[in-house]
Amino acid sequence: MARLNPWRWAVLGLAALYFLVPLGASVVFSVDVGDRVTFDAYSRILGTDGFGDSLLLALELAAATIALVLLVMVPASVALRLGAPRLRPVVEIVCSLPLVVPPIAFVAGISTVLKWGPEHLARTPFFRTMVAIQNPDFPVVLVLAYAVMALPFVHQALDAGLRAVDVPTLVEAARSCGANRTQALLRAVLPNLRGALLNASFLTLALVLGEYTVAHLLGFRPFAVWIVDISGAQAQMSVAVSVLSLLVTWVMLLALAAAGGRTRTTSRG
């Protein structure tokens, strides 16, 4: 580990100030009434209608998005690495498109497609599908949208992980040990991508918990939307909610790290 010389301390201090001062101010504001400390604002949140539902929905969406995006991207990335390494730039560009297309435009596109349901598909079985993916209890359409939005981050994380291991040799070694292709992927490659999978999950989780635009415009109410909805009512509570959402995200990230982090071998490849 590098030693911390005065310059590094200075930069670290500045960064800490930049992040911690607003956070600290928010916390102080949310617990300070006149001249005494009270956690009233926080306890009121828990009682407010929709807190549990929206948080649960956000977590479910996050879990589903992580599962979907990893199920698609892991086999794809490994196959790309083994079969067509020259296509990597193409895939990289495709995967970074969601960063270029603004979420507003993305939502506009999704809304248009969703409108095809009643307009063109009303007489076909697809109509039921269109309705089902917009079920407010669990809007599959949001999972699909988030999976696309998470692509750039997931791709970067997986790509870095795959570059750190010699995938072709590992697969061939596993195959010569009698493993078929699926076993080679599951038993020889995936365990060595644990760090990358964890990173991809982190980024996706953070993205989904904080996403507002798409969910709001499509009319769903996960945690981020709920926060904005209720924060109009009362200044102190809105700040308390923001602080709380930050804490929730942190706790989730820590939980994910703990779940995947029996870090015996992730230290070095």
Binding site: V165, D166, T169, L170, E172, A173, A174, R175, S176, C177, G178, A179, N180, R187, A188, P191, N192, R194, T265, G269
Partner: peptide, 27 residues
């Protein structure tokens, strides 16, 4: 390849990094 019944040693180090020596041999 996995039904060829041929053991192979590679030029580059090809041990599975996530397994210890016993785990590798027993793979």
């Amino acid at each position: 390849a996995h039904r060829r019944d041929a053991g192979m040693v590679f030029q580059s180090y090809s041990l599975f990094p996530h397994l210890d020596a016993v785990g590798n041999v027993a793979f």
